[in-house]
Design a binder for these strands. Structure first.
Lengths: 211, 211, 211, 211
DNA sequence: AATGAATGAGCCTTCATTCAT
DNA sequence: AATGAATGAAGGCTCATTCAT
């Protein structure tokens, strides 16, 4: 009967951000299904009602988290767009820079972990969001490949679709070991190796009689 | 009012296999968490008690499914072991053959889907099993890479670990589009493209006598 | 971040009346239990606190609504009081007039709907209020019946209590079809039919051999 | 962790019937909304799971209760069907008999109470079910009225629809005082009074100077 | 080997109400 | 007079698991 209000008032947005951040950590750590709303409110030191004041449902919270971080990522990756033919070294440097910079955000690491853990366990809405993100990423490579094939800089025998899948997969997997398995990876080296594999590797060698 | 036990008695193993097969489909389609024991027994046309006669728990069922299929896979992939230096073309052919052959098993497709959906959403036990499988697969490449690096056939600037992650990721991703997204992929072409990317791509160029 | 209090200040009573009117509509449409305070404040474009500024509780709001409208009804029906023996035709006309007049108030229709929907689903307080209203209405008839029985104008074989229940029921039911089922009923005709049934029907016929 | 099964096993149908009977009482007493599933399982001395083993939802339970009793009622009232012209006295007797007999079932009384409490507070599904029952009942009267109007035995100036509403209302209201208000009513007398009002009352009097 | 009624902890969600601002 | 973030009891429902038959 006696309702007590001992808690600090935050304005709506701050609470929301706080819940999202904490929830993302829990989701990433234990998985979405295994994280209960109770876990979340305990971590956030709020009560049930407060949670549902800010989010329509647990799923809604997940959506908000994903949308927010995905948008941030989209912004960051825009810069990688390679419409104009730049020298290879410049591209290398660009990827290296952007990659290194992103990897420094600790929130991002948690988000990547969440993303990779929960990619498939969900209704298509979620899956599609994450997937179209990766697809977007792939397109950058894909465009480059096709264009470069036309210009004779990349061998024509490879299938661009499969190749782009391959690239996404490579990126995902390395991210997986970094974010989920928490392996200490030298980020600079990792990026370079992957660029090496795909860029150098795909480039048609003058002296090579392909097949 | 007389309860009748009219249900066919299958000998234990057949029932077990039947449940596993049906459950695997359900897990692959709806996800492990979203598939209830009720869903399974309904599909299998048995009752609760019967289920727990064959499996200790729902988790136990998943384990059994994974163990069974993973062992089959291990057997199939043993042949890919490349201790002895074989000519590249032979290797190419080998991967191509094994891959094509595996892709024909419809049960395997379902299992791959399950594996890729649920890889991360779980307690470490499950994750480790699946992961060590992929690791095993990676090692085949990894060994080859390292050895080939020593022999001067593969560029030394790449990191073998990252490279093998990259390869696993590529394979996973293509499998994902095939099994989960159910895209119609030309398997032969896909395998060839990936071999092309990694094999040809990794080979140190100028002085190389291809094949 | 500065919270602004931009909302129009209505003087207390107007706000109160506005909330009551809107809430009555919602209660009538969705039922008391299924209408949340949130629904009400959304409709009234106010916030939680404002609501509780005007009403102690949701139940208090309902009480206020009922009291207000019930009092209006009492006023209107006072005129029907028949202490003095009036000629039948005059009575007929009176009921017809009062009924027709009442039915024209759209707010009343909503209130009737609410009353009939929620009569029983509640704690006795509410139920009693509504019920004593109907009882009051019944008494008008009841008095007339008894008096008329004494005067030999109404057959003595009927039970006045049951008869008055019967009359209330008849009125309620026709109101129900009108207000809740929203059937297009010719009000004049309906009133006349009911008067016919009860008045004409109950009058002892001189030439009639009763039973 | 330790699940204890101390409870007697009943076969499904008996449990179901037991729950329905107890729940009906609770619904009738406190109202559907104010009766929680917890209330029900406490009364039935079972646990949550057991409840949902037998009923899909709380609403489903209500539906089952209503369907069951409504069907029983339908059976009982079939006999009242008056296709063939029977003498008035015979009809009187028939109604009197059926009514008296029904009123003796204590479960029925509870059901009537429930029905009258919850008629309107619900989604149309429930409302329609109850309503079509009353409509069915009304039709019996309605048929008689129309036919009797044709045969010149009932005055033509009344509206059959309104008249049937009036009759249903009368019945409902008397039932209400009997079942909900728990008044001690002489059933025989009540039935007779209502028959008197409607039957005798409606009959056109040969020597009567109408109005 | 099979049955299926019973369990109960745990989940997500709603909502009337309070009170610091 | 008005705000709206916070409360927390209570609700309906799910589901893996057990065990008497």
């Amino acid at each position: 009967m006696t309702t007590q209000h001992r808690h600090k008032r935050k304005d709506g947005l701050r609470r929301q951000a706080q819940i999202m951040s904490l929830a993302m950590r829990l989701f990433a750590e234990k998985g979405y299904h295994s994280t209960s709303v109770d876990d979340i409110i305990t971590a956030a030191q709020i009560v049930k009602g407060t949670f549902y004041l800010h989010f329509k449902s647990k799923q809604d919270l997940l959506n908000s988290i994903v949308d927010t971080h995905l948008n941030l990522l989209y912004e960051s990756l825009k810069i990688l767009d390679i419409s104009l033919p730049r020298p290879l070294d410049e591209i290398r440097q660009l990827y290296s820079d952007v990659g290194a910079q992103l990897m420094q955000d600790p929130e991002l690491k948690v988000f990547v972990k969440l993303m990779l853990r929960e990619v498939m366990g969900h209704d298509s809405g979620f899956l599609n969001k994450i997937n179209s993100f990766f697809m977007g990423m792939a397109q950058l490579f894909s465009q480059y490949i096709t264009k470069a094939q036309d210009e004779g800089r990349i061998i024509k025998s490879i299938d661009p679709t499969i190749t782009s899948y391959s690239i996404i997969g490579s990126v995902k997997e390395v991210l997986f070991h970094w974010a989920v398995m928490d392996e200490k990876l030298d980020i600079q080296k990792s990026i370079n190796t992957m660029i090496e594999i795909y860029f150098t590797g795909l480039i048609e060698q003058p002296s090579k009689e392909v097949r």
